[in-house]
Amino acid sequence: MNTASSDNPSVRLTGMADGLRVVLDPKQPIDFLQSELNRLFKPLGHLAINTRVLLDYGEAEEWEGAEEMTAALEGFLKESFGVGTVVRPPKKRREVEEILRHRDMDRSWQNHRSDVLMLTGRVRSGQKVTARKHLLILGDVNPGGEVVAGGDILVIGTLSGTAAAGQPDREDAIVLSLDFRPTQVQIGTIVAAGLPSSPTKQTEYAYVEDNTIVVEDYLEADPFGRLPWPEVR
């Protein structure tokens, strides 16, 4: 017989304020578990009737047959001893998951390899700069200059040339510039040309909404200021 040693029994029974707690090793065969339960519950007699039972599989990881085993044991306990509800302990979040959530709020960027191409200088007429993902230019893009990116395009200076962000098909990309006066903007597949430029230098950005390119004052719109915490883009 598959017996449990006294200091590490396969089935244990303890009393709780609002019922009984059964800790058992789900790796044991069901017949054995039932006989052990029988042995432990019999002496309780009528005390077991209508009590709440907490079925705890201890350290065992969640496995596929858990529901089935719970149902079988619940049926057995109700039929044999007339217990009340049979429940399982509230699911604990697994540790890895816990760490992930923590990191999300904390510094998701720490292990992030940057995909930003950051350049300084001036993109002149006839020149073309292409970035696989985001493009950041500390400088200007002259009329006739061209900047293209798989992700966002940020020009810390004047953008007077053409900018194509989110290439080939990412419509959530943006184009931002401290002095926004491009001759043409493309985001994903959507193109806007002849954008009216403001008479004064203005930090504006372009994004896609309902298949159209919208240009807005960046500081007023503050599109990312509402995110609860910093995220990798």
Binding site: R124, S125, G126, Q127, N142, P143, G144, G145
Partner: peptide, 14 residues
């Protein structure tokens, strides 16, 4: 003139 500036810019790059 705008066109002249544009071409000058191109040449400067070259």
């Amino acid at each position: 003139e705008v066109a002249s500036v544009r071409d000058a810019d191109r040449v400067i790059g070259l």
